[in-house]
Design a protein around this nucleic acid. Structure first.
Lengths: 103, 103
DNA sequence: CTTGTAGTTCGCGTACTAGCGAACAATAGA
DNA sequence: TCTATTGTTCGCTAGTACGCGAACTACAAG
C-alpha cells in the first residue's frame, strides 16, 4: 500500500502556457477551487464544495490539471489536489498571488 | 471639432469582474493587444498588427473593452486605445503587471 | 456631395465549453 | 468476494467563441 501515487493523465508535460492558464482561471467554479486549495492545502474534489454534478466537477479539475495549475495524487480512495505554486511562481511570477488576492 | 470624445458602447459600467478580465486576457491575440498597448501607449486598432480580418480585430477589442481592460476614445477618424491601468491596479493589484511580465 | 479612413455590426459556419446522468475503474474494508 | 467510496469517461444538449466577408456608421478633407 503506497502512501501516495504520482498519478493522472497529464500533470502538465505541456510547458505552462499563459493563455491556457488564464483561461483555466477564468471560470468562477475553477477560481473557487484554486482559492480553496490555497487556503486549505491538499483537498479532495468533494472537499471544495462545488454545487455541481460529479462529472462537471471532475472536468473543472481536469482543466486546471491540464493547464498545470494543480496537481492530483491519490491516497487510498481519496484524490488529493494541490496548487502547483512553485512551477507557477517560477514561470509567471506574481500571477497566482495577484489572482488569489483579487477576492 | 472636439479633440477627444469619451465614446463607445461600454467602457465598463460593469464593476470589473475577475473571471471576465481573466477570460479577456486568455486569448493570444488579446494578450498581444494588451502588451502592445502597454509598450506603445495609445494605439489604433490597426496599429497592433494583428493578422486578422477587421471584424475579428474589432471583436477582440470589444471583449477587452467590455471586460474593462482597455478604454477607447476617438480622435478624428482614429480610434485610440489605452490600458485602464489605474482601474485594474486598484481592483486587482499586481495582476496586469504579472500578466505583462509573463512574456 | 463624394471619397477615403477607421471601426462596428450582422449573418454564417465551425468548433469548443459547460452542464447533466449513466456507466466504468480503482482502492479499502467487511 | 461483495460493497462503498471517489473520480473518470462517454454521450447528449444548449450556449458561446472565433474566424470570415459584406454592409453600415462616423468623421475629415477635397
Amino acid at each position: 500500500m503506497l502512501s501516495s501515487v504520482p498519478l493522472h493523465p497529464s500533470p502538465s508535460k505541456t510547458q505552462l502556457r499563459l493563455p491556457v492558464v488564464l483561461f483555466a482561471l477564468s471560470d468562477p467554479a475553477r477560481l473557487h477551487i484554486v482559492k480553496t486549495l490555497d487556503t486549505r492545502g491538499e483537498t479532495m474534489c468533494a472537499g471544495v464544495g462545488l454545487r455541481l454534478a460529479k462529472s462537471s466537477c471532475s472536468r473543472h479539475f481536469k482543466v486546471l490539471r491540464e493547464a498545470g495549475v494543480i496537481r492530483t495524487r491519490r491516497h487510498g480512495t481519496a484524490y488529493l489536489n494541490t496548487l502547483r505554486r512553485e512551477e507557477l511562481d517560477a514561470r509567471f511570477p506574481g500571477l497566482l498571488d495577484a489572482v488569489l488576492r483579487a477576492t
